[in-house]
Write a protein that binds this DNA or RNA. Structure first.
Lengths: 324, 324
DNA sequence: TTGAAAGCGCTAACAC
DNA sequence: GTGTTAGCGCTTTCAA
């Protein structure tokens, strides 16, 4: 087997270079038929004689004809491609979601146009004025805007995670959240649920901020330096975890002994860190593929039915232990 | 600030929904001019009177006209979009490269069509018959095929890494490689260089395989269970590292003491693992952006000049110590 | 069952 | 400087 060449960049639509591409007109000419007949044969129209089908097919083969997708799209007013706007593809969580969506779309004969939004908030208003189907993933838009969505049930997973910590005996738990968006709200609610359903007073501490490692680090420092520091920390995102971990390592705290730690979303780091880090996990690829399927259904004018909610689950790991 | 909505899927080309999109003809009609004049104004043609410019602009504003990209592309025979084929976007190394490329392309007004090839080898032959510019990233195609490339100088970084281990006193070093492609060959050569330039006999062990964690794990087991096991292991890729790490952890070996470890490509895991893992690193985002720039130059018919080689560097970290 | 002709929305000669 | 015209490659009436 020769050299591989799987990663690279290239224009998607082949443009004429050495050998000029043949058009449908040329195929028709060679076959001695009308272009409309060629079109019919190629689009699988029922009313074509076998003879015609054969002549056209032969000419197509001979010329190595490939339809011009651009012309087709223009004529049909549909492109068989969709756009995916992601905050930052280098975030492993988002990469998994994108992978799930891209695979599902490819299976359906669609292509994905990827854009990194770098979390530009101006996109919100852009989406509001967009006149085509939109599917949001774990996001919500102001009520008026009609957009379908695939959401994660962060609340349930977080309730289980905090419940686990409470059962271990922790009472002061620090929760580090990102932007005040849906996922943060849900996580907060999950934590509150866990305290409430045990009849415990709200002796937790919540730090809002951004889904960035810098925030994770700052918030962790803040929590640990407070008068009555938490015995357990919950990092509300994989980027936050990075910062939190940096700070815990810097202070030479041993997870599961000196302090307990739970994170959200099971990225490679959480599984391989020693000790492994407990997480609230979800099926990221499924999140992407379900979103893709939903969009395809919307494009096919099927009923939008309400937002789809995907489960999360708490995965206990040795980073959690009784308070020291 | 209201809800956010940055991650999601949607068709990239707005299709008529409630409000029908206006065409250039309608703009022309409203402005009382010819379509060609509208076209000239919009494309910034120099020979247009200020009066004309104003009338057209007003009509455009009034109708909220946006040019039909599809029609434009069809007419100009160019789409302002390129395709990026990646083995698996959920690999953080590749995600960084994609991010670099996408950002550069976006800055140039291009869009990226992303496809996960799942390392399908049939793509190789597809690329060979592709009649448009191609840029390979850290890959080579059989000589005959003319494709530009951006390559990583793995050899130099690996030579430095192995040199470091040799200086620490290691003599039996195990190198775990992926597929027998360019990057593996280069890494092997780098290791050989390090031994040769010190006049040392080739007392290393090289295990070929795939860029997968399963291979990393199997190869690590193989190396450690051999008669004369290595005192240092070099993982030739971030996926391989995962497997290697799993096996080392399972055996409760302490990095930098019981065994030394070097990996390739500085992903989050290598920095946060305790102790941090030494790596041969490179600028992944630059790799992507340079590839994008190269492709854009090729599309502009500029000279292709030979493959561009990007540097790698060894980053020593505590996972390396003297042999036990 | 097939062909002729119109037209998707745009750009680029070419004439005026 | 501006308008008229042709046409990119395809699909789809409409007639025959």
């Amino acid at each position: 087997m020769a050299e591989g060449a799987r990663d690279g960049v290239a224009p998607p639509v082949s443009r004429a270079a050495g050998t000029a591409r043949s058009s449908m007109r040329e195929v028709a000419q060679l076959a001695g038929v009308a272009v409309s007949s060629v079109s019919r044969v190629l689009s699988g129209h029922p009313d074509v004689s076998p003879a015609m089908r054969e002549r056209v097919t032969a000419a197509v083969e001979k010329l190595g004809y490939q339809p011009d997708i651009l012309a087709q799209s223009m004529r049909l007013r549909a492109t068989k491609s969709i756009g995916f706007v992601v905050g930052d593809i280098s975030n492993p969580l988002l990469a998994q979601i994108v992978l799930g969506a891209e695979t599902a779309l490819r299976d359906a004969g669609y292509s994905m146009l990827l854009t990194n939004s770098e979390n530009d908030p101006s996109l919100d208003s852009a989406l509001e004025h967009f006149d085509a189907p939109i599917v949001l993933i774990d996001r919500e838009l102001p009520g008026s805007v009609s957009a379908s969505a695939v959401l994660s049930d962060h609340r349930t997973g977080m309730r289980a995670a905090v419940g686990h910590l409470l059962e271990l005996g922790h009472r002061r738990i620090g929760l580090i959240l990102g932007q005040p968006l849906r996922f943060s709200r849900e996580r907060r609610l999950g934590l509150e649920d866990a305290y409430r359903e045990r009849g415990l007073p709200p002796t937790y501490e919540i730090v809002d901020g951004q889904l960035h490692s810098a925030h994770g680090r700052r918030a962790t420092r803040l929590l640990l330096d407070s008068e009555d520091p938490p015995t357990a920390i919950v990092a509300g995102g994989n980027q936050i975890l990075v910062g939190t971990l940096e700070e815990l390592v810097r202070r030479q705290l041993t997870l599961g002994e000196d302090i307990s730690l739970v994170s959200c979303d099971s990225v490679a780091l959480t599984e391989l860190f020693q000790p492994p880090i407990a997480v609230v996990r979800r099926d990221e690829r499924a999140l992407g593929s379900r979103a893709a399927e939903l969009l395809l259904r919307l494009l096919a004018d099927e009923n939008p039915d309400g937002p789809l909610t995907m489960p999360t689950a708490f995965v206990p790991r040795p980073s959690c232990g009784p308070p020291s």
